[in-house]
Design a protein around this nucleic acid. Sequence first.
DNA 1: TGACTATATACCTATTTGGCCAAGTACACC
DNA 2: GGTGTACTTGGCCAAATAGGTATATAGTCA
Lengths: 85, 85
Amino acid sequence: MLKALAHESRLMIVDRLSRGECSVGELTALVGNDISTVSKHLALLRAHGIVEDRRQGTTVYYRLLTPCVCNFFTCATQVLKERLR
Amino acid sequence: MLKALAHESRLMIVDRLSRGECSVGELTALVGNDISTVSKHLALLRAHGIVEDRRQGTTVYYRLLTPCVCNFFTCATQVLKERLR
DNA sequence: TGACTATATACCTATTTGGCCAAGTACACC
DNA sequence: GGTGTACTTGGCCAAATAGGTATATAGTCA
């Protein structure tokens, strides 16, 4: 799971999804890579059970499968803050 | 930081260090790699501010610089548990 | 100083990862 | 069926990572 999260683009994606579901197109615009690259990042996150997809027409929406991943980030942020001291 | 933790050997090292400081030799025996490999993992963890070293004679002891990394793991474990439901 | 122990670094190789492009698939609408 | 849109997958290349061996460094002790 850490490996799946240990990439800047994927972190951005998870961060965005923590604020609600989102289409592949929007995520692509957000991270600024080719859509095929983003799709592969999403496939990897899906394979690790971190996100889930839902197709509506031609659009595919992704959402966090484990909202608790957010707690994880809150936790990580705290670690980083403590480290600055 | 996630990248530094996203490796089996390094996770083992951090897990071990969370229970107290430890020499490179002991860590090498624990993870089962060549000492040069372990030394590089430790250098990487050190570069990311996760561990700190202390030399005593010819032996070098490593310890967690941020004990709060343990909270991070507690947190990650919770996420994993929740995901199993 | 020289031998010995413990660790670090340099260098090389093999594997993995990340990126893009091109081709394929899924769906909607005409 | 044909066209367009949204995404996914396969292929390929470049870069990063992880591993080992050989060499260097730091410290101890005779």
